[in-house]
Amino acid sequence: MASGKKQISQLARQFFKLSIVDGRLSEERVAGVLGYLEKHPPAKPLAVLLAYRRLIAGEVAKGLAVVEHAGPVSPAALAAIASAMSARYARPVAAAAKPATGLIAGLRVRVGDDVYESSVSGQLAALSASV
């Protein structure tokens, strides 16, 4: 059972490596991998596809900065954030706005697993934790 999961994970990683070109995710390679899988389905194709999708989603998330905000946020601010994150991660990072009223005011930026926050609710939470 464990070895089966390990094999699925290894196969998905191999497909994922084939989908990367010059350190970036290639849409053409992803389409090619999916076509190959459609023509030559491996054992347990659904599990392999799910693992592959998880890896692709993680890689896509690395190139996308989700900017949660409470209140209006200007396009210039989003562009500045995208530029700053691209410079930080040395790859193109796009910014996508997502309303989040729970922040009260301010921004929370997610890039992959990294989170950057400057919001009223975050400061109040930090204050609560320090007390």
Binding site: V73, I81, L107
Partner: peptide, 23 residues
Amino acid sequence: LAKKLTDADRASYNEAAARELTS
């Protein structure tokens, strides 16, 4: 704060936050 802050206040705060995050 959720009741009293206006959109202008939030926009101003968001601009400051964007500057902080980009810096």
